[in-house]
C-alpha cells in the first residue's frame, strides 16, 4: 500500500530503473562535491539508495506543487548527507541540476546543510544531529489534526542516534502510536571519529527501539527490493512508529572511498574524480 496510485507489488519491475537513478545520483554527488570543493561524500553515498527509493518510487510528492499540504514529508536528519538529497531533488525536477556544483557557495540556495526556506523541496531544516525524529513526529501529529494521512520519512545516521533527543522522540512517538512515522537508521558503521562501536556503546540498535515500542526491521540499505518491502511493511503497521535499520556502506559505489573514513568529509582530486566516474560509469571531466 505504498501509495494508492502505484502499488508496491508492481514496482519490483522497476528496480533496475531505480538502480540506474541511484547511479546517476551518485555521479551527481561526486561531481558536485568535486566541483564545489566541499562536502561529505561518504555518508551521502550510503543514503543514496534509500533516498532514491523514497523520491522515485514511494513518496507522494509533486515538484510542481512542492508545498501541497497532503504530500509525504521527508526529513534528512543526518543533514550532512544533503548532496544525495539535492541530487535527488534536482533530478526529480525541483530545481535545475546546473545548481548542484554551486553547493555551499555564497550565491547558491544549496546550503551546507538543508534549509527548508532556501531550497525547493526541502521539508525540514536539518544538520544539527538528533532532531529529525522529533520534527518528523510533529509532522505526523500535524497530519492527524489537519486530516491529512501523509507519511513522514526520516533518515538518521547511526552515530547520530547517540543524541539523547532521539530517544525522547522514540518515547513520544510510541505514546502517540505514530504509525505514519517511518525512520531509517543509516547504519554504515562509521562516524566522524571512527567506527560506531569504538566511539560509543550504541549497539545493538534495534532492541533499543523495540523496547520503546517501535516496529523494527533490519535490511540491506542498498537492496531496493528490501528497501521497498520494508517500507511496505512499515506502512502496514498503523499503530506503531517504524524503524528500519539499514545496513549500508559508507562510500558505496566508489570502491576507494569504502573503508577509508577520510571520505566522511573530503573533496576528490581530479584524478580521484576520474577514478570514481570510471566505477560509476559517469562522464570524465
Amino acid at each position: 500500500m505504498i501509495k494508492k496510485q502505484h502499488s508496491i507489488r508492481n514496482v519490483h519491475d522497476r528496480i533496475g530503473e531505480l538502480e540506474e537513478i541511484a547511479c546517476q545520483i551518485r555521479i551527481d554527488i561526486i561531481t558536485m562535491i568535486h566541483k564545489a570543493g566541499d562536502g561529505h561524500p561518504g555518508g551521502s553515498l550510503s543514503v543514496t539508495d534509500m533516498i532514491t527509493a523514497l523520491y522515485f518510487e514511494v513518496m507522494n510528492v509533486d515538484p510542481k506543487h512542492p508545498e501541497k499540504p497532503d504530500r509525504d514529508r521527508f526529513v534528512l536528519s543526518k543533514g550532512h548527507a544533503c548532496p544525495a538529497l539535492y541530487a535527488a531533488l534536482a533530478r526529480k525536477g525541483y530545481f535545475s541540476r546546473d545548481e548542484l556544483p554551486r553547493l555551499r557557495s555564497l550565491e547558491s540556495h544549496l546550503q551546507g546543510h538543508p534549509d527548508m526556506n532556501k531550497t525547493p523541496g526541502i521539508d525540514s531544516t536539518a544538520g544539527s544531529l538528533g532532531n529529525g525524529v522529533s520534527i518528523g513526529l510533529g509532522m505526523v501529529l500535524a497530519g492527524r489534526l489537519t486530516g491529512h494521512d501523509y507519511f513522514t520519512y526520516v533518515i538518521t545516521g547511526d552515530g547520530e542516534i547517540q543524541e539523547g533527543v532521539i530517544w525522547e522522540a522514540a518515547m513520544t512517538a510510541s505514546k502517540y502510536k505514530a504509525g505514519r512515522l517511518i525512520v531509517f537508521v543509516d547504519n554504515n558503521g562509521i562516524q566522524s571519529s571512527g567506527p560506531v562501536d569504538k566511539v560509543s556503546g550504541l549497539y545493538p540498535i534495534l532492541p533499543k527501539w523495540a523496547a520503546f515500542g517501535w516496529h523494527c526491521q533490519e535490511i540491506d540499505g542498498h537492496d531496493f527490493s528490501q528497501i521497498l518491502s520494508a517500507i511496505e511493511k512499515a506502512q502496514a503497521c498503523t499503530d506503531q512508529p517504524s524503524v528500519i535499520q539499514a545496513h549500508t556502506v559508507k562510500g558505496k559505489g566508489v570502491p576507494f572511498m569504502v573503508g577509508d573514513n577520510s571520505w566522511h568529509k573530503r573533496v576528490p582530486t581530479t584524478e580521484e574524480y576520474r577514478e570514481a566516474m570510471r566505477h560509476l560509469g559517469g562522464p570524465c571531466l
Binding site: 527548508m116 532532531n131 510533529g138 505526523v140 501529529l141 522522540a169
Partner: peptide, 15 residues
C-alpha cells in the same frame, strides 16, 4: 528538546 523540535514539525505543517 523533543517538545521544541516536535513544535517545529507541527509548525512546518501549518499549525
Amino acid at each position: 528538546q523533543n517538545a521544541v523540535d516536535c513544535a517545529a514539525g507541527l509548525a512546518a505543517c501549518g499549525l
